[in-house]
Simulated assay, not measured.
Amino acid sequence: MRIRPAVTAAVSLATALSVSVPAAAHAADRAGSAGTTFSHVVVNGGKDLVLGPTTKKTVTIAWTATDPDGIAASWAYLWHGPNTDDADGLLPHYPPNGTCTVSATDPTTATCAVSFGVDAAKDLHRNAVAGTWQVLAGAQDGTDDWTEIDAAGTAHLKRLARATVNASPEPVRKGGTLTVTGRLTRANWESGGYTGYQGQRVELQFRKKGSSTYTTLKTVTTGSGGSLRTTTRARTDGYFRFRFAGTTTTGPATATGDYVDVR
């Protein structure tokens, strides 16, 4: 499924995009100039891509390309799967060239970026593609040789999660037992909705009235359909919430605190 964008004749001049997180690019060159290297590869500003079933988002890949013969053009895109030939996901589907700026002090180096839209409803049809994606980076040098690195960097695409909470009874007497229930769900890219996330560890947290800090009281494991249920003692007025830290395939989720009046 390798796709090489149409290569322009020269690097376009544009405002350079600042990047900060270097990523190793040790895969073998695919063709041409073995002198081309890629560094400072950053996707989405270094943040995870957490997408709901209908999320639309603009994603930017930024990188630096260097070649002793200069950089005439460069490109990058995301792919998922065992290798680029058997990829089961590609973003964007039709990769454009990046916009590159040649360094004012080093003509062998160009800072590049490409932005593209991701529409979860159209672009993500399988939940199995959640997780780590690779960045393919390529470049054409000043002598028309070109190089591609399959794993120049990584990005993490995750399913959006949601958490709910309800503490009862309300109000409750001091020292009484509160039953706290809720549900953890996550985006289902295949159905276009949300489904329960079973078997996940979720923290029950409490914030005293007048305070801005939540404290973890206990950890609860989600049951069938992502259900949450536990009990705790009512000691003072405040807010209860469930907090899920996330996994390698699913983003974090925190329920809006439910206030309980203790009398």
Rank of each mutant, 00 (worst) to 15 (best):
K158G: 09
V260F: 02
V260S: 07
A62I: 07
G46R: 06
R4H: 03
R183N: 08
T164W: 00
S224F: 00
T55E: 01
H93Q: 14
N188F: 01
W133V: 12
L204F: 03
G142Y: 09
T37S: 15
T219K: 04
V165C: 02
V42Y: 01
H156F: 08
T250L: 03
L13A: 07
V19R: 12
R2C: 06
D144F: 11
G35R: 07
P68C: 05
S103E: 08
T55W: 04
G138H: 03
A110D: 06
A139V: 06
L17Y: 08
G117V: 10
R201I: 11
V41N: 14
G89L: 12
G223S: 05
I149K: 14
N83R: 02
G138F: 01
A25Y: 05
T179D: 02
C100S: 12
D123F: 00
D144N: 10
L13E: 10
W79Y: 11
Q140A: 15
V59C: 10
A255P: 09
D69T: 14
A72F: 06
T37W: 11
G98M: 02
T177D: 03
Q134C: 09
A104E: 08
A16I: 08
L13Q: 13
A104Y: 14
S227E: 01
G225L: 02
K122N: 15
H156D: 10
S74R: 11
R235V: 14
S39T: 13
V262H: 08
N83C: 06
A139T: 02
V7L: 09
A151S: 10
S20C: 08
I3S: 08
D85Y: 01
G45P: 00
T58Q: 07
Y259G: 12
T15Y: 06
T256W: 01
V42H: 04
D145K: 12
K158W: 00
T132C: 09
A65S: 15
R4E: 09
T185M: 00
T55N: 03
A110V: 01
S103Q: 09
C100M: 10
G193H: 06
A25L: 05
L124I: 12
A255K: 02
T64P: 11
G131M: 13
T232P: 11
R186P: 03
H125C: 06
T215R: 09
G46V: 03
Q205P: 02
V135F: 15
P68N: 03
T219E: 01
R233C: 10
L184M: 05
P22Y: 05
A27T: 15
T99D: 12
S227W: 00
I71C: 01
S191L: 04
D141G: 04
L17F: 13
V135G: 14
P95C: 11
K158Q: 10
A167K: 15
V41P: 07
T254G: 00
T132G: 11
T84V: 15
I71D: 00
L136F: 07
A113I: 08
W75I: 02
G257Q: 05
